[in-house]
């Protein structure tokens, strides 16, 4: 049994008199202790999926089990195992201080004075806002507000944490800090469900990735498998001298950079690489460097989504 199970989730909204199918029968499972990323272009159905898991949206069909509890019939039990940082600034009370925020959100989940007294200093330490505990949340920087939102989500010590766009609008340093926090949480055994557009974050932290488009699953696999699927077919050839009569553009992306000529190729089959090598040999083109291009996750994502669109 996974920490989180989503079965045949369907949701249709009525917008301006028209039916909009946001999610069309999505099923997936998130394992204990993993970082699971949901990716997709805008309007793919990511937020509806996350909100359905949190029961902020009631789906038309499908089942969601949180630690075995069906959220439609055992909502309170399921929610006791979940906490979330929602997109943007939708997680903190701007008119309360950092400390008051943690206390308020702890209390409204029913936690006792004793629990909060012990837990809040620990959270403040973890989110590095100990010195800011008496400052109004509204006066903190965007990065600090996001740390506070994460702190609020950590307070109830739930085994599963949902993060919707945790690095959106953050500077590089704050994004790195959030990334570090995610690793620490994973090491503590937390299960994290992440929805993001930040491919760098996915590449660095995710164990498995679910890509959805137009409300349907395109792929759900381990991150490494997705990267490998694209990595082995991309090459970069750096060479010198004239390329003669051959029009290299028909083989891939050809450009010049710092006096070097570069050809980037995407292959369906490795034998195509040998064919190009033969042409280079025939034309006496001196290859200086050949490398297997390390595709980044952004390229993987774009390729998968484009493939689905086509």
């Amino acid at each position: 049994m996974g920490a989180l199970e989503v079965e045949n989730l369907k949701k249709t909204y009525i917008s301006k008199g028209k039916k909009v199918e946001a999610v069309k029968g999505i099923s997936f499972e998130v394992n204990e202790g993993e970082i699971f990323a949901i990716l997709g272009p805008n309007g793919a159905g990511k937020t509806t999926t996350i909100k359905s898991i949190l029961r902020l949206v009631i789906p038309d069909e499908g089942k969601i089990y949180v630690k075995g509890f069906d959220i439609s019939t055992h909502k309170a039990k399921a929610l006791e195992n979940l906490s979330a940082v929602l997109e943007g600034n939708r997680n903190i009370h701007w008119k309360l201080t950092v400390y008051e925020n943690l206390r308020y959100f702890g209390y409204i989940r029913g936690f006792s004075d004793k629990f909060l007294k012990d837990k809040i200093p620990e959270i403040l330490e973890f989110i590095e806002l100990k010195d800011k505990k008496n400052e109004l949340a509204g006066k903190l920087s965007r990065g600090m507000q996001q740390k506070l939102a994460i702190g609020i989500a950590l307070l109830p010590e739930t085994p599963i944490i949902l993060l919707d766009e945790p690095t959106l609008g953050l500077d590089v340093e704050s994004s790195l800090k959030i990334r570090e926090m995610l690793f620490e949480l994973k090491n503590k055994g937390k299960t994290i469900l992440l929805s993001t557009h930040d491919m760098n974050l996915v590449e660095k932290v995710a164990d498995r990735v679910l890509i959805i488009n137009k409300g349907k699953i395109i792929v759900c696999d381990r991150k490494e498998n997705l990267l490998n699927a694209f990595r082995k077919k991309a090459y970069k050839i750096v060479f010198e001298g004239e390329n003669g009569k051959i029009d290299l553009r028909k083989y891939g992306k050809f450009y010049e950079e710092y006096g070097e000529k570069i050809l980037e190729i995407q292959l369906d089959d490795i034998s195509q690489l040998y064919e190009i090598m033969e042409i280079f040999k025939k034309e006496h083109i001196e290859i200086r460097h050949l490398e297997n291009v390390m595709v980044n996750f952004e390229e993987v994502f774009v390729n998968i989504v484009r493939g689905d669109e086509n």
């Binding site: 949190l54 600034n89 939708r90 903190i92 009370h93 409204i108």
Partner: peptide, 18 residues
């Protein structure tokens, strides 16, 4: 408008009681 309401809905206590 400030986005606090969802956290009340996520609480196991529920928005009505809160």
């Amino acid at each position: 408008s400030i986005g606090l309401i969802e956290q009340s809905f996520i609480s196991p206590i529920g928005p009505t009681l809160i």
